[in-house]
Design a protein around this nucleic acid. Structure first.
Length: 501
RNA sequence: GUCCCUUUCGUCUAGAGGCCUAGGACAUCUCCCUUUCACGGAGAAGACACGAGUUCGAAUCUCGUAAGGGACGCCA
């Protein structure tokens, strides 16, 4: 690994993210997409979205749409691939959905067969599993040994003509040797060629298999760099063999570590939220998500923790990719999110909060000045946009539940007196909203007339306003709340104090 | 079973033979700010998986062991 990585200038940078549409986009996939995106943008290359939908049973158009929505949310726009709205291909190397490239794979499979480097195999599922069991019983690697390996093409074609279903198997060369991969994140990796048996290229259904289309497409789409998940590392051997059989130049590969849950097992659904969509719905910002997942296996050369998209592009380089698996730490995500949240201009922050307010049926004044003051008062306690709902609720015209510590405050001997006076004074106030000065004056009067100070003064007032004894400063909170609402809540507090608590 | 990958504070990581008494960030704890909470500021605690070797010197190189992960599919 070199100190500062620079891609080979003679090859245009073209990278791809190639998800299979079998569910939502999970955070691991998002990170792979992000790294590829950053790589392309950093080096002025193309970022391609290719859809690996050759598993007919599991691929759905709904999943494809969901994943595209998630990529759009993350802002990882692609130069080639299905159009984000219409799904119609854009770019000169299409189609970009593998299910629509079947003819291409068939042609190349036939070329490899013609070279004598692949063959038709008529083995049934039973024969294969039987062989595998036998091999395992003998302690040998569970590789298939097809009896059709040595058939002539004529023989095979005759059987094919009878309508017998056949797969196409790659013929792994006899003499054992090492295939050497120079991995961008792992350095030199050696695979012994006998690591794999004759593997399937084309299913009997005519659909190609992942390793085959991946190799074909990476070449045909002129992919220069492949950044993908670690689970593909061993697959790379097969792809290297296919490239070799066709006499093609290999792209560069970088195998990314996997993302683990808190129990150090591969992150999966049982860990709770793992899809990008979950995080979006839970009020995380796209900026924070990108920032946080970028840091899961990559570090900024300046040890910077909070980075904008531009900074990520500027600083990204594969030589700072970490080879070890990383645990997804939600706490740090929260911190990253809170930090980005506070850095957002208020106008923008408000726009992002709006969908959450609407969902909770909360309505607020539309003037920017009010919104600006409200955000200044409350955003420091906001980790996620969703937190904004509970935080802003006291500013809306709704009833609020009293919390347990609030009841404690209200049980103080002087509290009913204080709240009653507070109610009386605000009810008599001429304006719809109190100013900070108004509040101070009112507070002074209560202080004198009720002969209380300190927490015995402001805590009951606070509870009579927001239903709980902690929160933002009263002097900024009160000018944000309609007087009618303040009176209503004071009444509510009083009635609760009348009844035994 | 065979092959491949990985292993630094609880977590994310810096580190590419002497700069390491191992640095930063999140989380934790303490203090300051504050008539509450949060924000902010200062500080504390906390790690080189283990064992051999190479070397004057090893977190860094080599080999073993252990643990975790991956591949060995007509899944991707």
């Amino acid at each position: 690994m070199s100190q500062s990585y620079v891609p080979n200038k003679s090859v245009p940078v073209r990278v791809r993210f190639a998800p299979s549409p079998t569910g939502y986009l999970h955070v691991g996939g998002a990170r792979t997409a992000l790294y590829n995106y950053l790589f392309a943008r950093r080096w002025g290359g193309k970022f391609i979205l290719r859809i690996e939908d050759t598993d007919e049973a599991r691929s759905t158009i709904e999943s494809l749409k969901m994943q595209i929505e998630d990529l759009k949310w993350l802002g990882l726009d692609w130069d080639e691939g299905p159009h984000p709205q219409t799904l119609i291909d854009k770019g000169h190397f299409g189609p970009y959905r593998q299910s629509q490239r079947r003819i291409i794979y068939k042609e190349w499979a036939e070329k490899i067969i013609a070279k004598g480097l692949a063959y038709y195999c008529f083995m049934t599922d039973e024969e294969i599993s039987q062989q595998r069991q036998q091999a395992e019983a003998q302690g040998k690697p569970p590789q298939v040994n097809s009896p059709y390996r040595h058939w002539t093409l004529d023989q095979a074609q005759e059987k094919l003509a009878q309508g017998t279903p056949a797969t196409v198997r790659f013929k792994v060369m006899g003499e054992k040797r090492d295939y050497v991969l120079n991995d961008l994140v792992r350095g030199e990796v050696r695979f012994p060629s006998d690591m794999v048996g004759d593997f399937v290229l084309m299913r009997s259904s005519g659909m190609p298999v992942f390793n085959f289309c991946c190799a074909i497409d990476d070449h045909l789409m002129q992919i220069s760099h492949v950044l993908r998940a670690e689970e593909h590392l061993s697959n790379t051997l097969r792809q290297m063999m296919i490239f070799e059989a066709l006499g093609w130049k290999l792209p560069e590969y970088g195998h990314l570590s996997i993302i683990l849950g808190p129990d150090k097992q591969k992150l999966s659904k049982r860990h709770g939220a793992t899809s990008c969509n979950d995080y979006r719905e839970n009020g995380f910002l796209q900026e924070a998500m990108n920032n946080f997942i970028a840091l899961l296996g990559w570090s900024s050369p300046q040890a910077q923790e909070i980075l904008s998209r531009e900074e990520l592009i500027e600083q990204f380089s594969p030589d700072r990719l970490h080879a070890a698996a990383a645990v997804f730490d939600e706490q740090k995500l929260h911190w990253v999110n809170a930090t980005h949240l506070r850095n957002l201009p208020h106008e923008e922050l408000w726009q992002r909060l709006l969908p959450f307010f609407n969902q909770a049926q909360l309505e607020f004044p539309t003037d920017m000045d009010w919104q600006d003051r409200a955000l200044s008062a409350l955003k420091t306690s906001m980790m996620t946009l969703k937190d904004g709902v509970e935080l802003f609720k006291p500013l809306a015209k709704t009833t609020l539940p009293f919390t347990l510590p609030a009841k404690d405050t209200m049980s103080w001997e002087s509290s009913p007196k204080v709240v009653a006076k507070w109610r009386e004074l605000i009810a008599a106030h001429p304006q719809r909203y109190l100013t900070e000065d108004d509040f101070h004056q009112i507070q002074e009067i209560i202080k004198k007339e009720c002969a209380v100070k300190g927490k015995f003064l402001f805590m009951p007032i606070r509870v009579a306003i927001i239903g709980k004894p902690e929160g933002a400063e009263l002097k900024v909170l009160i000018p944000l709340i309609d007087k009618e609402v303040l009176v209503e809540r004071a009444d509510m507090a009083l009635s609760l104090m009348d009844s035994p608590l």
